[in-house]
Simulated assay, not measured.
Amino acid sequence: MKRNKIYIILLVVILAAYFGYNYIYQEHRDISAETADYTINASDFIAEFINDSETAQTKYLNKTIVIHGDITAQTDNSITLNTSIFCSLLEPNTISQDTIVSMKGRCIGYDDLLEEIKLDQCTLTKINQ
């Protein structure tokens, strides 16, 4: 009888370790290949966060989003749309400022201090001249 309990405990420990390992070491998401959960204009997106940031974060957090907006600031690895949406790029930036673009990325949150919405793994989907 004691031996059966040891086997059951050992089985539970092995299963917990297996599922724990798979949970921690999940494959990374390929945001550029995913279908967007939301497609939205940058000014509407910003307005949702300004009006009720908690509800907007619940709605958009960790979702794939396509945003249409105007490039207001840029570096080699990031673009800011409409002065309030910071997009961290997967590839270096070659787009000129004051261009209207569509960016696809994953929403990672809202920074109350800087009043910026943060997106990562962003890729350019369309340039509107």
Results as ranks from 00 to 15, higher is better:
C87D: 00
C87G: 06
C87N: 04
C87T: 00
L89D: 00
L89P: 07
L89S: 01
L90V: 13
L90C: 12
E91S: 13
E91K: 11
P92R: 15
P92C: 15
P92A: 12
N93W: 05
N93Y: 09
N93G: 09
I95V: 10
Q97I: 15
D98R: 13
D98V: 12
D98C: 12
T99Q: 04
T99W: 02
T99S: 10
I100Q: 15
I100S: 15
I100F: 13
I100L: 15
V101H: 08
V101C: 10
S102E: 14
S102P: 13
S102T: 13
M103Q: 07
G105L: 05
G105W: 00
G105K: 00
G105M: 00
R106L: 02
C107W: 01
C107Q: 08
C107T: 04
C107F: 09
I108G: 05
I108F: 09
I108C: 03
I108D: 08
G109N: 02
Y110L: 05
Y110P: 02
Y110C: 05
D111K: 03
D111V: 06
D111W: 00
D112W: 12
D112H: 09
L113Q: 11
L113V: 13
L113K: 10
L113W: 10
L114F: 07
E115F: 07
E115K: 02
E116F: 09
E116L: 12
E116R: 08
E116W: 10
E116S: 09
I117L: 01
I117S: 02
L119R: 04
L119T: 01
L119C: 02
Q121A: 02
Q121R: 08
C122M: 05
C122H: 04
C122K: 07
C122Y: 07
C122D: 06
T123V: 09
T123H: 01
T123N: 01
T123D: 05
L124W: 08
T125R: 05
T125M: 00
